[in-house]
Design a protein around this nucleic acid. Sequence first.
DNA 1: ATTGAAATGTAGGAAAC
DNA 2: GTTTCCTACATTTCAAT
Lengths: 155, 155
Amino acid sequence: MKIPGLDPTDIDILRLLQKDAQLTNKEISFTLRKSIATIHERIRRLKEQGYIDRVVAILNRKKIEKSLIAFSQVLLNGHAADTLYQFEKEVMKFPEVMECFQMTGNFDFLLRIATSDMDAYHDFYRHKLATLPNINSIQSFFVLSETKSVTAYPL
Amino acid sequence: MKIPGLDPTDIDILRLLQKDAQLTNKEISFTLRKSIATIHERIRRLKEQGYIDRVVAILNRKKIEKSLIAFSQVLLNGHAADTLYQFEKEVMKFPEVMECFQMTGNFDFLLRIATSDMDAYHDFYRHKLATLPNINSIQSFFVLSETKSVTAYPL
DNA sequence: ATTGAAATGTAGGAAAC
DNA sequence: GTTTCCTACATTTCAAT
Protein backbone atom coordinates (compact mmCIF):
# COMPACT_ATOMS: atom_id res chain seq x y z
CA MET A 1 0.00 0.00 0.00
CA LYS A 2 1.34 3.40 -0.97
CA ILE A 3 0.28 5.28 2.13
CA PRO A 4 0.29 3.54 5.51
CA GLY A 5 -3.18 3.18 6.98
CA LEU A 6 -5.05 4.08 3.79
CA ASP A 7 -6.75 1.77 1.31
CA PRO A 8 -7.72 2.65 -2.27
CA THR A 9 -11.13 3.98 -1.18
CA ASP A 10 -9.51 6.36 1.30
CA ILE A 11 -7.18 7.59 -1.43
CA ASP A 12 -10.12 8.13 -3.77
CA ILE A 13 -11.95 10.13 -1.13
CA LEU A 14 -8.90 12.30 -0.46
CA ARG A 15 -8.42 12.88 -4.16
CA LEU A 16 -11.98 14.11 -4.50
CA LEU A 17 -11.96 16.28 -1.38
CA GLN A 18 -8.67 17.91 -2.34
CA LYS A 19 -10.38 19.21 -5.46
CA ASP A 20 -13.80 19.99 -4.01
CA ALA A 21 -14.54 19.74 -0.32
CA GLN A 22 -18.17 20.70 -0.84
CA LEU A 23 -19.05 17.35 -2.33
CA THR A 24 -21.73 15.76 -0.17
CA ASN A 25 -21.33 12.26 1.20
CA LYS A 26 -24.15 11.33 -1.13
CA GLU A 27 -22.28 12.49 -4.22
CA ILE A 28 -19.06 10.81 -3.12
CA SER A 29 -20.86 7.57 -2.34
CA PHE A 30 -22.36 7.62 -5.83
CA THR A 31 -19.01 8.26 -7.52
CA LEU A 32 -17.14 5.60 -5.56
CA ARG A 33 -20.03 3.12 -5.45
CA LYS A 34 -20.03 2.76 -1.69
CA SER A 35 -22.76 3.46 0.82
CA ILE A 36 -23.23 6.90 2.33
CA ALA A 37 -22.54 5.50 5.79
CA THR A 38 -19.20 4.09 4.67
CA ILE A 39 -18.12 7.38 3.12
CA HIS A 40 -19.25 9.19 6.23
CA GLU A 41 -17.26 6.90 8.48
CA ARG A 42 -14.15 7.09 6.26
CA ILE A 43 -14.13 10.86 6.20
CA ARG A 44 -14.65 11.01 9.95
CA ARG A 45 -11.63 8.76 10.39
CA LEU A 46 -9.50 10.67 7.86
CA LYS A 47 -10.15 13.87 9.80
CA GLU A 48 -9.72 12.33 13.21
CA GLN A 49 -6.41 10.71 12.26
CA GLY A 50 -5.17 13.96 10.76
CA TYR A 51 -4.91 13.03 7.10
CA ILE A 52 -7.26 15.92 6.40
CA ASP A 53 -5.81 18.93 8.11
CA ARG A 54 -8.48 21.50 7.36
CA VAL A 55 -11.05 22.68 4.83
CA VAL A 56 -10.60 26.17 3.46
CA ALA A 57 -11.98 28.54 0.85
CA ILE A 58 -9.51 29.45 -1.88
CA LEU A 59 -10.03 33.00 -3.08
CA ASN A 60 -9.49 34.37 -6.54
CA ARG A 61 -6.32 36.38 -6.09
CA LYS A 62 -7.08 38.73 -8.96
CA LYS A 63 -10.51 39.63 -7.59
CA ILE A 64 -9.26 40.50 -4.11
CA GLU A 65 -6.47 42.78 -5.26
CA LYS A 66 -3.58 40.66 -4.15
CA SER A 67 -2.20 40.65 -7.62
CA LEU A 68 1.44 40.67 -6.68
CA ILE A 69 3.11 37.51 -5.43
CA ALA A 70 6.78 37.63 -4.55
CA PHE A 71 9.14 34.81 -3.69
CA SER A 72 11.98 36.10 -1.53
CA GLN A 73 15.16 34.26 -0.72
CA VAL A 74 16.52 35.33 2.63
CA LEU A 75 20.08 34.79 3.84
CA LEU A 76 20.80 35.35 7.52
CA ASN A 77 24.03 36.34 9.26
CA GLY A 78 25.15 33.07 10.78
CA HIS A 79 23.04 30.09 11.63
CA ALA A 80 22.98 30.08 15.37
CA ALA A 81 19.87 28.26 16.53
CA ASP A 82 18.63 31.41 18.14
CA THR A 83 19.12 33.50 14.99
CA LEU A 84 17.02 31.06 12.96
CA TYR A 85 14.38 30.80 15.63
CA GLN A 86 14.03 34.55 16.09
CA PHE A 87 13.66 35.09 12.34
CA GLU A 88 10.99 32.41 12.07
CA LYS A 89 9.13 33.71 15.06
CA GLU A 90 8.94 37.25 13.71
CA VAL A 91 8.38 36.55 10.04
CA MET A 92 5.42 34.28 10.63
CA LYS A 93 3.57 37.13 12.30
CA PHE A 94 3.40 39.09 9.04
CA PRO A 95 0.09 38.41 7.29
CA GLU A 96 1.71 39.19 3.94
CA VAL A 97 3.92 36.11 4.41
CA MET A 98 1.79 33.18 3.31
CA GLU A 99 4.62 30.68 3.38
CA CYS A 100 8.01 30.47 4.99
CA PHE A 101 10.29 27.51 4.42
CA GLN A 102 13.78 26.83 5.62
CA MET A 103 15.65 25.55 2.57
CA THR A 104 18.68 23.71 1.35
CA GLY A 105 21.06 25.64 -0.89
CA ASN A 106 22.76 28.98 -0.81
CA PHE A 107 20.05 30.86 1.09
CA ASP A 108 18.23 30.10 4.34
CA PHE A 109 14.54 30.85 3.88
CA LEU A 110 12.12 31.07 1.01
CA LEU A 111 9.10 33.31 1.58
CA ARG A 112 5.93 33.68 -0.44
CA ILE A 113 4.63 37.19 -0.01
CA ALA A 114 1.22 38.45 -1.16
CA THR A 115 0.57 42.16 -1.61
CA SER A 116 -1.68 44.29 -3.76
CA ASP A 117 1.02 45.88 -5.89
CA MET A 118 4.67 46.86 -6.05
CA ASP A 119 4.11 49.87 -3.80
CA ALA A 120 2.64 47.67 -1.11
CA TYR A 121 5.45 45.16 -1.53
CA HIS A 122 8.04 47.90 -1.24
CA ASP A 123 6.34 49.10 1.91
CA PHE A 124 6.35 45.61 3.38
CA TYR A 125 9.96 45.12 2.41
CA ARG A 126 11.29 48.34 3.91
CA HIS A 127 9.19 48.62 7.02
CA LYS A 128 8.66 45.01 7.98
CA LEU A 129 10.89 42.37 6.42
CA ALA A 130 14.13 44.35 6.22
CA THR A 131 13.80 45.49 9.83
CA LEU A 132 14.19 41.95 11.21
CA PRO A 133 17.54 41.33 12.94
CA ASN A 134 20.43 39.36 11.43
CA ILE A 135 19.38 39.60 7.82
CA ASN A 136 22.30 39.37 5.43
CA SER A 137 20.50 39.58 2.11
CA ILE A 138 17.05 39.36 0.53
CA GLN A 139 16.60 38.49 -3.11
CA SER A 140 13.09 38.75 -4.53
CA PHE A 141 11.42 37.39 -7.64
CA PHE A 142 7.95 38.28 -8.80
CA VAL A 143 5.24 36.24 -10.41
CA LEU A 144 4.56 37.35 -13.98
CA SER A 145 1.93 34.76 -14.73
CA GLU A 146 0.41 31.73 -13.09
CA THR A 147 0.48 28.61 -15.23
CA LYS A 148 -0.70 26.20 -12.56
CA SER A 149 -1.63 26.56 -8.93
CA VAL A 150 -3.29 23.77 -6.99
CA THR A 151 -3.41 22.74 -3.35
CA ALA A 152 -3.96 19.08 -4.19
CA TYR A 153 -1.09 16.70 -3.60
CA PRO A 154 -0.61 13.96 -6.18
CA LEU A 155 -2.05 10.71 -4.79
CA MET B 1 -13.32 50.59 0.00
CA LYS B 2 -10.23 48.39 -0.23
CA ILE B 3 -11.63 45.79 -2.61
CA PRO B 4 -14.07 46.84 -5.33
CA GLY B 5 -17.52 45.38 -4.83
CA LEU B 6 -16.95 44.20 -1.26
CA ASP B 7 -18.10 45.82 1.96
CA PRO B 8 -16.65 45.13 5.44
CA THR B 9 -19.08 42.26 6.04
CA ASP B 10 -17.97 40.52 2.84
CA ILE B 11 -14.35 40.91 3.90
CA ASP B 12 -15.13 39.45 7.32
CA ILE B 13 -16.85 36.47 5.72
CA LEU B 14 -13.91 35.84 3.37
CA ARG B 15 -11.47 36.11 6.24
CA LEU B 16 -13.37 33.46 8.18
CA LEU B 17 -13.89 31.09 5.24
CA GLN B 18 -10.24 31.29 4.22
CA LYS B 19 -9.33 29.84 7.60
CA ASP B 20 -12.21 27.39 7.99
CA ALA B 21 -14.73 26.74 5.26
CA GLN B 22 -16.66 24.32 7.46
CA LEU B 23 -18.09 27.09 9.58
CA THR B 24 -21.86 26.93 9.32
CA ASN B 25 -23.90 29.93 8.28
CA LYS B 26 -25.26 29.90 11.80
CA GLU B 27 -21.82 30.21 13.37
CA ILE B 28 -20.80 32.96 10.97
CA SER B 29 -24.04 34.81 11.53
CA PHE B 30 -23.43 34.68 15.27
CA THR B 31 -19.84 35.94 14.96
CA LEU B 32 -20.71 38.77 12.60
CA ARG B 33 -24.07 39.61 14.18
CA LYS B 34 -26.10 39.24 11.02
CA SER B 35 -28.97 36.90 10.21
CA ILE B 36 -28.36 33.46 8.77
CA ALA B 37 -30.17 34.42 5.58
CA THR B 38 -27.90 37.43 5.07
CA ILE B 39 -24.76 35.36 5.46
CA HIS B 40 -26.19 32.77 3.12
CA GLU B 41 -26.97 35.37 0.47
CA ARG B 42 -23.54 37.00 0.81
CA ILE B 43 -21.69 33.73 0.40
CA ARG B 44 -23.83 32.81 -2.58
CA ARG B 45 -22.88 36.14 -4.18
CA LEU B 46 -19.17 35.81 -3.31
CA LYS B 47 -19.12 32.45 -5.05
CA GLU B 48 -21.19 33.51 -8.01
CA GLN B 49 -19.04 36.58 -8.63
CA GLY B 50 -15.88 34.53 -8.34
CA TYR B 51 -14.33 35.98 -5.19
CA ILE B 52 -14.42 32.47 -3.75
CA ASP B 53 -12.82 30.25 -6.33
CA ARG B 54 -13.29 26.89 -4.64
CA VAL B 55 -13.45 25.06 -1.32
CA VAL B 56 -10.86 22.36 -0.81
CA ALA B 57 -9.52 19.96 1.80
CA ILE B 58 -5.92 20.60 2.77
CA LEU B 59 -4.12 17.37 3.58
CA ASN B 60 -1.39 16.82 6.10
CA ARG B 61 1.64 16.44 3.88
CA LYS B 62 3.55 14.37 6.39
CA LYS B 63 0.75 11.85 6.77
CA ILE B 64 0.34 11.24 3.05
CA GLU B 65 4.01 10.61 2.35
CA LYS B 66 4.62 13.69 0.28
CA SER B 67 7.37 14.75 2.60
CA LEU B 68 9.63 16.26 0.00
CA ILE B 69 8.83 19.65 -1.47
CA ALA B 70 11.19 21.10 -4.06
CA PHE B 71 11.26 24.52 -5.61
CA SER B 72 12.88 24.39 -9.03
CA GLN B 73 14.00 27.35 -11.07
CA VAL B 74 13.85 26.60 -14.75
CA LEU B 75 15.65 28.52 -17.48
CA LEU B 76 14.65 27.88 -21.07
CA ASN B 77 16.63 28.23 -24.30
CA GLY B 78 15.26 31.41 -25.76
CA HIS B 79 11.93 33.00 -25.06
CA ALA B 80 10.02 32.50 -28.24
CA ALA B 81 6.32 32.58 -27.48
CA ASP B 82 6.01 29.02 -28.64
CA THR B 83 8.87 27.80 -26.43
CA LEU B 84 7.22 29.28 -23.34
CA TYR B 85 3.81 27.99 -24.28
CA GLN B 86 5.00 24.46 -24.99
CA PHE B 87 6.83 24.28 -21.67
CA GLU B 88 3.76 25.50 -19.75
CA LYS B 89 1.47 23.13 -21.58
CA GLU B 90 3.59 20.09 -20.79
CA VAL B 91 4.67 20.92 -17.26
CA MET B 92 1.15 21.53 -16.02
CA LYS B 93 0.25 17.97 -16.91
CA PHE B 94 2.61 16.57 -14.28
CA PRO B 95 0.70 15.91 -11.05
CA GLU B 96 3.92 16.37 -9.08
CA VAL B 97 3.95 20.02 -10.15
CA MET B 98 1.60 21.79 -7.78
CA GLU B 99 2.53 25.26 -8.92
CA CYS B 100 4.16 26.76 -11.97
CA PHE B 101 4.83 30.47 -12.22
CA GLN B 102 6.52 32.49 -14.89
CA MET B 103 8.83 34.84 -13.02
CA THR B 104 10.87 38.01 -13.22
CA GLY B 105 14.63 37.64 -12.74
CA ASN B 106 17.35 35.41 -14.08
CA PHE B 107 15.24 32.31 -14.62
CA ASP B 108 11.94 31.76 -16.39
CA PHE B 109 9.75 29.50 -14.28
CA LEU B 110 9.45 28.57 -10.65
CA LEU B 111 7.94 25.17 -9.92
CA ARG B 112 6.74 23.68 -6.67
CA ILE B 113 7.14 19.94 -6.85
CA ALA B 114 5.74 17.44 -4.35
CA THR B 115 7.15 13.92 -4.13
CA SER B 116 7.49 11.29 -1.45
CA ASP B 117 11.27 11.37 -1.13
CA MET B 118 14.51 12.16 -2.91
CA ASP B 119 14.35 8.97 -4.97
CA ALA B 120 10.93 9.91 -6.28
CA TYR B 121 12.11 13.44 -6.98
CA HIS B 122 15.11 12.16 -8.86
CA ASP B 123 12.85 9.94 -10.89
CA PHE B 124 10.54 12.84 -11.71
CA TYR B 125 13.50 15.03 -12.60
CA ARG B 126 15.19 12.60 -14.95
CA HIS B 127 12.22 11.00 -16.62
CA LYS B 128 9.72 13.82 -16.73
CA LEU B 129 10.97 17.35 -16.12
CA ALA B 130 14.36 17.10 -17.82
CA THR B 131 12.86 15.49 -20.91
CA LEU B 132 10.87 18.59 -21.84
CA PRO B 133 12.21 20.44 -24.88
CA ASN B 134 14.22 23.67 -24.77
CA ILE B 135 15.33 23.44 -21.16
CA ASN B 136 18.58 25.27 -20.55
CA SER B 137 18.98 24.69 -16.81
CA ILE B 138 17.10 23.53 -13.73
CA GLN B 139 18.16 24.55 -10.26
CA SER B 140 16.36 22.95 -7.33
CA PHE B 141 16.05 23.78 -3.66
CA PHE B 142 14.43 21.58 -1.07
CA VAL B 143 12.28 22.38 1.94
CA LEU B 144 14.06 21.53 5.19
CA SER B 145 11.30 22.73 7.47
CA GLU B 146 8.01 24.52 7.20
CA THR B 147 7.73 27.59 9.38
CA LYS B 148 4.45 28.86 7.98
CA SER B 149 2.13 27.66 5.28
CA VAL B 150 -1.32 29.14 4.80
CA THR B 151 -3.67 29.52 1.86
CA ALA B 152 -5.32 32.64 3.32
CA TYR B 153 -4.55 35.94 1.66
CA PRO B 154 -4.19 38.91 3.99
CA LEU B 155 -7.40 40.96 3.87
C1' DA C 1 -30.07 44.26 1.18
C1' DT C 2 -31.97 42.02 5.43
C1' DT C 3 -34.98 39.30 8.07
C1' DG C 4 -37.79 35.29 10.37
C1' DA C 5 -40.12 31.38 9.29
C1' DA C 6 -41.11 27.34 6.50
C1' DA C 7 -39.62 23.52 3.44
C1' DT C 8 -36.05 20.48 1.96
C1' DG C 9 -31.89 17.96 2.32
C1' DT C 10 -27.84 16.36 4.66
C1' DA C 11 -25.18 14.88 8.56
C1' DG C 12 -24.54 12.01 12.27
C1' DG C 13 -25.63 8.24 15.23
C1' DA C 14 -27.61 3.60 16.38
C1' DA C 15 -29.18 -1.10 15.47
C1' DA C 16 -29.31 -5.28 12.77
C1' DC C 17 -27.53 -7.99 9.09
C1' DG D 1 -18.97 -2.88 5.17
C1' DT D 2 -23.86 -2.14 4.18
C1' DT D 3 -28.79 -0.99 5.03
C1' DT D 4 -32.40 1.17 7.33
C1' DC D 5 -34.28 4.28 10.43
C1' DC D 6 -34.20 8.32 13.16
C1' DT D 7 -33.22 12.92 15.05
C1' DA D 8 -30.83 17.13 14.84
C1' DC D 9 -28.95 20.58 12.07
C1' DA D 10 -27.89 23.05 8.00
C1' DT D 11 -29.16 24.80 3.70
C1' DT D 12 -32.30 26.95 0.77
C1' DT D 13 -36.33 29.44 -0.53
C1' DC D 14 -39.68 33.00 0.06
C1' DA D 15 -42.85 36.72 1.46
C1' DA D 16 -42.35 40.95 3.81
C1' DT D 17 -39.74 44.91 5.14
